[in-house]
Design a protein around this nucleic acid. Structure first.
Lengths: 215, 215
DNA sequence: TATACAATAGCGAAATAGGGTGATATTAAA
DNA sequence: TTTAATATCACCCTATTTCGCTATTGTATA
């Protein structure tokens, strides 16, 4: 008994859809268990025809491929979804990943490329067209390191401690107690902090401190 | 005149290093402009031998490939760095991307795979081994959607507005003015907000609101 | 039709925060 | 050695915040 990778196709372009079906039906190790132009009966299709991999177009009439991906992942988490598109849109890429796509390839891929990609996702990998992968890495970097504190504010070590306790929601008295100094000293520090941060209240200072990662 | 992709290699394993050198020197369109076992003289090497792509091992004696990647990106931002490793470590992947690696491949790649990957990075893409790409996507998802507000707090719409303005550093009076109601109304709302959030001061509320993404 | 909740508003008292000014001791830099 | 920055503390005064309690209105909901 040979293990087949069962693939379901969602692709609105009829010619492409039939090409995929033909390719999968005539390649060893692959089977096409359905090919549909839109996602109108998607959940029923998936429930009736078990499959391992879904080849999902993004641009489709009705529900788009990203929303469809999200739905499939919710009800059939074991299915690997290979998203394909003609566009490089950052929003597409970002949303497709968040929706749970397991791979993301460009439509310019060769027939063998498709088969390779389907094998890759089935094996637990995530084939990504290099051009798209570059965008993924850029997005990753942008989102994950939103610039270290652009401004330094030149807070002293004691001021930083006070600011931290202020962010923790402590009152002047409590901060004073924790740092073993007089409440008036804390008041003085906080005045200086406000001046350096150009704010005039605790809430403003806390807000800025958190957003600028001063704490 | 043919355009060559000039590649510099950093790889501590002598056999691998020489294999790469041989492969690049004997493949059309590629040139090896240097192959070193560590990064001790890296910056000088790069300054003296212009190159387009660096093939960088992660595990090396002395400076590791990730730190080296960071340094190269700082001084030679036009150079594309292709990182390779034998390990699937999430930390490696994460840090390599943040350091500015343009591609990330496993050492099990075939000779042709290396040449393809080098061509890909030079063309502005980011070849990533599917297995690693899967980890990248997982990391991406984990880091970017750090759980929606675990607690709901059941704030009303008006209370949310008030909280937002409080986070913006506004005083009771200013909030009242912006929402066209009496200051005492804001006082009431804030009392209710504090009760729902289990806090007792503006700074605490702002801190919690930002950290729990209520705003 | 009661009941609950949201939004509104007011009153009073106590606590806290914030602005200003000034002083002292210590330490680091010019 | 003078100067500048830091950390400390005090006093005065006002504004703001916080807590409690009460109360009205409109809108859903049981």
């Amino acid at each position: 008994m040979i293990s087949l990778i069962r693939v379901m196709i969602f692709e609105d372009n009829k010619h492409l859809r039939e090409t995929f079906r033909f390719l999968l039906s005539n390649s060893n190790g692959f089977a096409c268990v359905g090919a549909y132009p839109d996602c109108s009966d998607m959940m029923e299709n998936l429930a009736e025809n078990p499959c391992d991999v879904v080849l999902m177009d993004i641009e489709m009439p009705g529900m788009n491929g990203i929303e469809a991906t999200r739905l499939i992942r919710q009800s059939f988490p074991h299915i690997n979804i290979l998203v394909q598109t003609v566009f490089f849109e950052d929003d597409y890429i970002f949303n497709a990943i968040c929706a749970g796509a397991s791979g993301y390839i460009l439509k310019s891929t060769t027939p063998d490329g498709y088969l390779e990609a389907i094998k890759d996702v089935q094996a637990g990998g995530s084939p990504i067209t290099p051009g798209i992968a570059r965008r993924v890495l850029e997005l990753f970097k942008d989102k994950l390191q939103p610039a270290p504190p652009a401004k330094e504010y030149n807070l002293t070590t004691q001021e930083k401690k006070v600011l931290q306790l202020l962010v923790a929601g402590k009152s002047y008295k409590m901060i004073a107690a924790e740092l073993f100094v007089a409440p008036d000293t804390i008041k003085s520090h906080i005045s200086n902090i406000y001046a350096k941060l150009h704010v005039h209240s605790g809430t403003e200072a806390v807000s800025l401190a958190i957003r600028d990662r001063l704490v």
